[in-house]
């Protein structure tokens, strides 16, 4: 049995229709650490923003078709603004990088939400474990737990001291905060941190996949069911870091070509001497539309309608991939 109580917010679709979009303006931008910026957003019309609780995130509509989710890390009692922390992830497909490069004080930005799939439950004691940019929802939680006068511990790991956002602010909270920069302190000692399972203690964690997996393993084995609450990096789920290889068959010649996990169909075909007209390279212009005869397409364009996508009779080969091992293209 899994000790998981809270899952990732991968199923946000159902909420989207009820939520209104809010026009905001970036009112502050702080380089909080290497590759991390903190952006503070206020409603463009100066009104109060919707209420939220620690653990909540917002959708940030970066541009047509690109939506990214970021946890709020400011003070929930301050309704005049939201603050989000954004890591410029090297594997970013453009969302985080776009934030870093293009959003400055005065930039207008549309957001949706907030919504919360990582709620802070009431407990006697709290253990927080944050990895990297996963500190953002945890920081908001700490503030609340601290105000409630509950005992807590924070273990915060990162690549280097300089890459860890909010570190100084957190360190000022005293010895309940334990900082683990990998390059000098090594990985967090999870076996010790989680060494004393306790019915009245809950564990909250947010961070990269390997960290979550390790924590989950320990909690599954030793902690009471329901103790562990976690949130995966939304960006990871959304940005689809788990692309896999598949085959395409070219119906006109019968050739079969393998599309590797890190290449698009368009690139792979081009390398094999099959050139399909393309333009935007990001699934927005429709130029590279290619007829599909068999197989189920993993549509990632933003130009076909849902109906058109569900017909499975064509794909934009610059971005779309396959949901099955073989796609047959009418090429």
């Amino acid at each position: 049995m899994s000790a998981l109580a809270t899952l990732t917010h991968s199923s946000t679709v159902t909420f989207e229709e009820e939520e209104r979009e809010i026009k905001t303006t970036v009112v502050a931008r702080l380089d909080a650490a290497t590759d991390v910026v903190l952006l503070t957003l206020a409603a463009a019309d100066g009104s109060e923003l919707p209420a939220w609780r620690p653990g909540a995130h917002i959708d940030v509509l970066l541009s047509n078709g690109i939506t990214r989710q970021y946890s709020l890390c400011s003070d929930p009692d301050d309704r005049s603004s939201y603050t989000i922390g954004v890591l410029n992830a090297p594997a970013s497909r453009g969302g985080s990088r776009y934030v870093h490069e293009s959003l400055h004080v005065g930039t207008s930005l549309t957001i949706r939400g907030p919504r919360n799939h990582f709620e802070l439950v009431d407990a006697q004691r709290y253990v927080f474990i944050a990895g990297g940019i996963g500190i953002t929802p945890i920081a908001a939680m700490l503030r609340e737990v601290e105000n409630a006068g509950k005992p807590w511990m924070l273990y915060y790991g990162g690549r280097t001291v300089s890459s860890m956002a909010l570190r100084e602010e957190l360190e000022s909270l005293g010895d309940r905060v334990s900082i683990w920069p990998e390059d000098t302190a090594g990985f967090m000692d999870l076996a010790t941190i989680l060494g004393s399972p306790d019915e009245d203690t809950v564990v909250y964690t947010c961070g990269p996949e390997p960290l979550l997996a390790a924590i989950e393993k320990i909690c599954d084995a030793r902690w009471p069911e329901g103790s562990l609450h976690y949130e995966r990096f939304a960006a990871k789920a959304i940005e689809g870091a788990t692309d896999t290889a598949f085959e395409v068959e070219l119906a006109k010649s019968g050739r079969r070509i393998t599309v590797p996990a890190d290449k698009s169909v368009l690139e792979t075909l081009g390398e094999n001497g099959v050139h399909i007209l393309s333009s935007c390279g990001e699934g927005t212009c429709g130029t590279c539309e290619t007829p599909v005869l068999e197989g189920e397409v993993d549509h990632r364009d933003s130009v076909l309608t849902k109906d058109e996508q569900s017909r499975n009779d064509c794909m934009m080969v610059c971005v779309s991939r396959s949901k099955c091992p073989l796609l047959v293209l009418d090429v």
Binding site: L61, S63, N64, G65, I66, Y98, S102, T284, S302
Partner: peptide, 9 residues
């Protein structure tokens, strides 16, 4: 961007 993509769409 972001206006470009919005307009182009």
């Amino acid at each position: 961007n972001p206006r470009h993509d919005q307009l182009r769409a």
